[in-house]
Design a protein around this nucleic acid. Structure first.
Lengths: 194, 194
DNA sequence: AGTATTATGGAATAATTGTTCCAGAATGGT
DNA sequence: ACCATTCTGGAACAATTATTCCATAATACT
């Protein structure tokens, strides 16, 4: 009946996501996003909506990617608890030249805009999921519940700092290494106490 | 001879700095900044320059504040080494309702713009100064040089993550507490090895 | 007090922003 | 092959952006 859409919505959202990820919400003009996506104004406004709607789609896609990874690693019962954390960190911080550096969620928290203020609770929820994933790991590794809670908090915070380090230009391999060192340190602490 | 400037340049830069700090570079319009500073367009363009020049002044003021604190605490030979770190953390993360949350340097690293790209090396230098301050502390506390380097790196990264946590809405008291816990953890590790 | 000098406020400008709209192109079903 | 439907590209729009400019107000010195 009707002419079908020429483009794949997921594909163009991905492209827009990478642009937002690199440049931030405010610095990304519709024009620049369209150039990146390779579609025209009307196509965007007809299929997805305005800039805010586009950003929400992008952020949601980013978050669901992170949450999938959390489920597949940190919350994966089939893996030994230590491997869960190591795999999560390794996959999260492996060098990937085709992706922007840092983290769209962290970047968004560091900006401020009417729209972004609304989205912060959603972002917080995903980051809390990550932290609770680490909590599950440390609860396996450690008898003391308080230590597990504290260790999970430190890992979650260290990861956010690691995302800032990437933006600062520190190589991902170094960033990953620090994270693994901290995890070992916190695990050893567990071992000592056992 | 000439009519003197009605406003104090440092004062208006401080006001602009707090606005940039809260909202980021791109989201801060000249109009909003002028309202905050309480001066007119021409006054700004005559005394300081355009938006980029203003931002550079603001960032420089922010950085010099941080560097002064680093000198007064982390690099203060008059203090016991552990106190240096504790004082730095406590003063950096004490609750202060009159200041925006997070850190202008971290926020700037997470944005991207032609101007901001130029400023990243400067920001990196201040952050490296902070890390070297912690390195000095850990070198006092610890025999193993490698451990000191690693611990300083972890503290520096944790602080950046702590700034993101503040943006996420986590209370400063909690954020500070985590930092003190990590510092203790790294110091204890030192003690164990000694 | 007069004058030279400079800050000040607001109008004016040009560029860019996000958004809407419309004519035409393209397609799937009949 | 036609037609209804919907996507597409670009023009058009209003709002906002950063910046410049000029006439006026305000001061310090003689």
């Amino acid at each position: 009946m009707a002419r079908p859409q020429k483009f794949d919505e997921n594909v163009i959202v991905t492209k827009a996501m990478m642009y937002f990820w690199e440049h931030g919400y405010s610095s990304s003009s519709i024009q620049a996003l369209l150039d990146e996506m390779g579609i025209s104004r009307s196509s965007l406004y007809n299929s997805i909506g305005d800039k805010d709607a586009l950003f929400q789609h992008c952020l949601a896609q980013f978050q669901s990617g992170v949450e999938r990874l959390i489920q597949a690693t940190l919350l994966n019962d089939a893996l030994p608890s230590k491997d869960r954390a190591v795999q999560f960190l390794t996959l999260s911080f492996s060098e990937n030249p085709s992706l922007p550096t840092g983290c769209l969620m962290v970047n968004t928290l560091c900006e401020d805009d009417a729209l972004l203020a609304e989205l912060k609770p959603t972002i917080a929820r995903t980051l809390e999921l990550m932290e609770s994933g680490f909590l599950a790991v440390f609860e396996d590794l450690l008898d003391d519940k308080n230590h597990a809670v504290q260790s999970a908090r430190l890992m979650a915070t260290q990861i956010k700092g690691a995302r800032v380090n990437q933006r600062q230009g520190i190589p991902s391999s170094d960033v990953l290494n620090d994270l693994l060192v901290l995890f070992d340190c916190l695990s050893e602490r567990a071992a000592n106490l056992k």
